[in-house]
Amino acid sequence: MNYLIDIVLIALSAAVINNFVLYYFVGICPFIGVSRRVDMAVGMGCAVTFVISIAAFLSWTITTMVLIPGAPISSFIAGFFVSKEAAATVDLTVLSYIVYIFSISSSVQFVEMYVRKFFPALYKSFGVFLPLITTNCAILFACLTIMSNVAGVENPADAWDLGRSLTLALFGGIGFTLAIVIMSGIREDLDLCDVPEPFKGAAITLVVGGILALAFMGFTGVDSGLRKAMTPAEEVAMEMSVEPIQTAMIEPNLQQQIRGIND
């Protein structure tokens, strides 16, 4: 049950509460560049979601099997050269950035080749976006978040397993798709509006993105409210929590956030 709550919260948090684009600002380049038409935005979103899931799987596997201290593969190889105890402390996390970027760009390359060969129709619809995705921050950001939750935790029992990592990546991708599709819908209407000359193009898009981010800030505190509602005796907490989520829960969380930024 606890595990299920975790999965639900990670999914909700990645998709809407801390949306990749509107909260963490990753993937801004396609958000501005490819959000002109709805069908292109959908294609880009699907391609990112697809690649982000593969990259998350790869980075979780590499981090747990090779990079962290005491990982099976690195300690096995080091065991040939040094004693068993010394081999268990080999820490390769310093190499993580290079390994991640290499695995992302090679997986993008392979996915592109595979899709072009076996699904020509699919390749026509989103294949053109695939090379662009290598330099999409959202992918690397998902890998880094997974790494900090696998290697950065103090208690090994808190480390994320594959299920949590894949949930984060999949719903992060869905959140990215959501943001870029909403944006492209607005931009199609924006083309008909009388925008002042200097603001045409990127400038007005950014301002609209700001208002969109403001709307998504309304979800702040939903996760902690949900956690509160789901952990204790469920029926009682469910009834109690409806009110706090909407009023009291948002305030402390927001203040905490503001304080965090000021610090």
Partner: peptide
């Protein structure tokens, strides 16, 4: 204006400054 140090403020500030730079150079 706390909103300026939160995520939405970043988008709005950059959008307005971008417009200003465009206007000035034009």
């Amino acid at each position: 204006w706390v909103i300026m140090v939160l995520p939405p403020g970043a988008f709005i500030t950059l959008g307005l400054l971008l417009g200003l730079v465009n206007w000035y150079s034009a």
